[in-house]
Nucleic acid binder design. Structure first.
Lengths: 216, 216, 216, 216
DNA sequence: AATGAATGAGATTTCATTCAT
DNA sequence: GATGAATGAAATCTCATTCAT
């Protein structure tokens, strides 16, 4: 699937969004990303970041004037570029196939999105944790994501519902189950630290059945 | 349902597990719980806890000698008592009804567990967040939860599988989808800050269909 | 003169304005005052303050959350209490003697104000230096001092002018010369580090002659 | 008055004393001067200087190896050249007119010196502030200025005193009042940010009367 | 038991200065 | 010469923890 090629890892995207950055600054960004994901933002010191990046502590502050800006530099391009692109790419794929079945749609979503999640697990972890802790980030995220879903995912769902391919629940609920189920894989891997290649196909089957229309 | 009555809110459980505590210490515990859930453990200062509890900062330390002990005092009883009881109660219910259908089992699980999640969302949030950041807590949790599920949930799943009531996936995967789906509700509510009374029945239907055996 | 007794040293006033302060906090305030006066605010580190006060560095921040607040704690009571009281006390003295001569007025002003300047040289040095460097402090000072002079000093000057006891210059100019001349003594002492007991009488004579009406 | 033409602005003098300086270094010097005067030396960063000068931060250090040298480059020529020349020029004027009256002398001093103060207010502000904070600068200034006044101003004062044109106070006191009164104008302008063309003549009259011999 | 001032280790941040390009 | 990224020492500030009252 050509689309898959388009999905860049969020880390690369963060870097792309921070073009023309001197190499040491990239190291700082990479170190921050790794440490924030591993230990959490609040538990990571700039000293650790500097050590991991192999730079002096002052260097951490050269481009990003506060630790919070460092977090923003990681999350912002993700929310404003990577995430939107991800959703729009999906929409394009789907719109070009008006007579998609539920299976085709879910497979189309899950395969690419799971690849994305696996590549960008680190940033997603940071995002999820910080969203649950910072009100400002939460509303920023909601105001970014809501219209994206509204405009790109929901019309597709509605069309499928109209054709009797999808259960008749509110779109937000269907999205909750789709996204949530994919994210459980992130959590599973955290706990079991094991990789399961079969995960994708199982998730597809689970969603496909779970979201089938109610048969009375 | 009688069982529901048995499910105490985690906070009450925490308090129960900390019996004979002077009132000020209870206030400290309650304040910590609220603040940890809202802002995260690392972002909460003992000063904030003291203020919220209406006590002096020194008082925070009378019973719990470190901030970490405070976290432990909240999470430990939850993991060692509340959580096990929750699962065992479920097992007892189910074991007494050998010919349960998938629907009955899932309903039996979800109704009570969702009530539990809704009551104890605060502690769960703390637990999930801290588990993702502390390796020790993670292995502690895994070594607690794994046998519990192994001993209580998995036999039930196996029996249902044997009777063709349940899809033939590894138990851990089925548990992942059941627990994960229920937890998505926590996250949904965090983002949308809206309560949906219909959530439970939708989740039941979603799981029931999603976990049905593959029909070929 | 009874009034002289009323003039408290600004340091005592700063302390008075910071009543019920634990002794260590007073030491912090006193150390800050001394060091700011000696080395300037920007050249004084909180480490120096802590060392001079004989406390830990954290103690410096217990009551005053920033170094700037420490400066404010010293200057604010001076501007809002000591300085106004100083001017009002003068006004009361003078108002009770409607037929004062220029000599009497100037003597009445200079004697007490010079005592004040000598006692509070340290704070005045800080105030003058910081005023010349911070725009906010400057306008704060102007908006405090201007009405005070307007209401208390200028009417007295006008009355003397009307009686031909005082040169017919704008009040602000007369104030400039009176205050300025007194302050030159501060600067002289800084440079020569010598005390001249005769200063007061010389200043009185200089002002008395300098501010006499123009004889044509 | 021809002399007035001779008085160059201190900035020009500073520049003159730093002849053969590449243009970028001049910009650095000018930026430093402006910023030190506005914000104080300690509150000005080399980054600000570089930005204001329109050069890179490294360039600030090409000629002046430390920030202190930058201050020295501004103040030194002022103290060693501008200031001495100012006083000597005055002396030459006066010596050539042995029968000067007090009015003539004061006018001769004040007119030119006030022009000087107005032109060089920025440097004077820096000088005064730093003198009050640095002991080395203070003694340097005293050892420079004292003999200059001793040799050039004091003989003139003595001659006038001998002729009964001037009050019989110590020369240092008379100098204090003359210089101090002129400097009050600097401070007045800082506070009121208004220019008063009449200032010079009022100051002359004030000094002339204030320094008149005591009449008994 | 409770208080809250004090502590000091350590975190964040600043900035004069250096140095490779 | 000029640049600006990098440095690291030192400054400001935070906060879990202790302790005298």
């Amino acid at each position: 699937m050509a689309e898959e090629m388009n999905i860049q890892s969020a880390f690369q995207s963060v870097m792309a969004a921070n073009q023309d950055i001197p190499p040491k600054q990239k190291q700082v960004l990479a170190a921050s990303l790794a440490l924030f994901a591993q230990q959490g933002f609040a538990n990571t010191t700039t000293k650790q970041i500097a050590a991991r990046a192999g730079v002096a502590e002052g260097t951490v502050y050269r481009r990003y004037k506060t630790k919070d800006e460092l977090l923003a530099a990681i999350l912002a391009p993700f929310m404003t570029e990577v995430f939107p692109r991800l959703i729009k790419e999906f929409a394009q794929d789907v719109v070009s196939q008006p007579y998609m079945t539920r299976h085709e749609m879910i497979e189309s979503i899950v395969v690419d999105r799971m690849a994305f999640i696996q590549k960008n697990g680190a940033i997603l972890r940071i995002l999820i944790r910080e969203i649950s802790v910072r009100k400002d980030l939460r509303s920023q995220f909601v105001s970014h994501a809501a219209p994206l879903l509204q405009d790109n995912l929901f019309p597709v769902l509605d069309r499928l519902k109209a054709r009797g391919e999808l259960v008749d629940w509110p779109d937000s609920r269907i999205a909750q189950f789709m996204i949530g189920t994919m994210l459980t894989e992130l959590f599973r891997r955290l706990l079991l630290s094991e990789d399961d290649a079969a995960a994708v196909s199982v998730i597809i089957e689970f969603l496909e059945k779970g979201l089938a229309p109610t048969t009375k």
